[in-house]
Write a protein that binds this DNA or RNA. Structure first.
Length: 257
DNA sequence: GCCCTTGTTACGCC
DNA sequence: AGGCGTAACAAGGG
């Protein structure tokens, strides 16, 4: 599932298209922007890329921006090569019938978003103002500010893209495990030390996971999620709960409220 | 064929 | 008003 780390991997792949001019566009009819994209994009040149949370943005030479959001199973293919071969919960295949967006370029290359479950969303000039600060820009002060007045479970709030942009289910569990904070803990009762630990865990572990290849490379990896071995830190019994409507793996011994 | 998976949004309630 | 909890959505895979 593309979380902020996968979005950054996709952005880096998309960076290769800078300088290319779009000659043809194919869009899944399910996208409510399909007609608009077909009308507007041909003839435009990609001049840059950036990313906020899970949103990858292609900057176009007319000043517009094309926002790519990959949903649960969307993958980016640039020049025929998938930026990520293995995506948890996604099919291992890259079937052309699952192409939801295809941009052909003037030099004969192309970019595709392939998404079996059709939750990817493409739109011009995406509204990024509702997103919180990016996971790579977190500071204790910023996180405290975003959580002010909130009292829901910390994990549910980390997954709220308006609080922090880029956390998905796996890296939220990983960061809380690393920080020693219970996913059930109310944001209203978190200590300054716990907030600092969460930010420290994000700053330390997320770049490492990015370099290792994505959200599935943490301690709480898919194998651990599936088999619930003893906690790798203290040997305690890992638990599988639902928090914020999502499956949550955590250790009640060292992750405290 | 049933049920699991996730990110986002819609909706009802407080 | 706005926070919060829950369900719905798509559809492949087990």
């Amino acid at each position: 599932m593309p979380e902020g780390l996968e979005a950054e991997i996709y952005r880096r792949a998309a960076e290769r298209t800078v300088g290319r001019t779009i000659t043809a566009v194919e869009v899944d009819d399910l996208q409510d922007t399909a007609d608009e994209l077909r009308a507007v994009l041909p003839g435009l040149t990609i001049v840059g890329t950036h990313r906020v949370g899970k949103q990858v943005v292609l900057d176009l030479d007319d000043g517009e921006r094309l926002g790519l959001h990959f949903g649960m199973t969307g993958r980016l293919i640039v020049d025929g090569a998938s930026a990520i071969d293995r995506l948890e919960y996604a099919s291992g295949r890259d079937d052309p019938k699952w192409d939801r967006l295809r941009l052909d370029f003037d030099d004969g290359t192309h970019l595709r978003v392939n998404d079996p479950r059709r939750w990817a969303v493409f739109r011009l000039d995406p509204d990024l103002d509702r997103l919180g600060p990016d996971i790579f820009d977190l500071t204790p002060e910023l996180l405290a500010e975003r959580l002010r007045g909130r009292r829901a479970a910390i994990k549910a709030l980390l997954l709220d893209q308006g609080v922090v942009a880029g956390f998905g289910n796996m890296i939220a569990d990983e960061v809380l495990w690393q920080a020693g904070v219970s996913p059930h803990a109310s944001a209203a009762t978190l200590s300054d030390e716990q907030l600092a630990a969460i930010v420290e865990a994000a700053q330390t572990n997320l770049p490492e996971m990015l370099e290792r290849g994505g959200s599935h490379t943490g301690v709480i990896d898919p194998e651990v999620r599936a088999t619930l071995p003893p906690c790798p830190r203290d040997g305690g019994p890992l638990r599988r709960d639902t928090v914020g409507g999502r499956t949550t793996i955590w250790c009640p011994v060292h992750q405290t409220a």
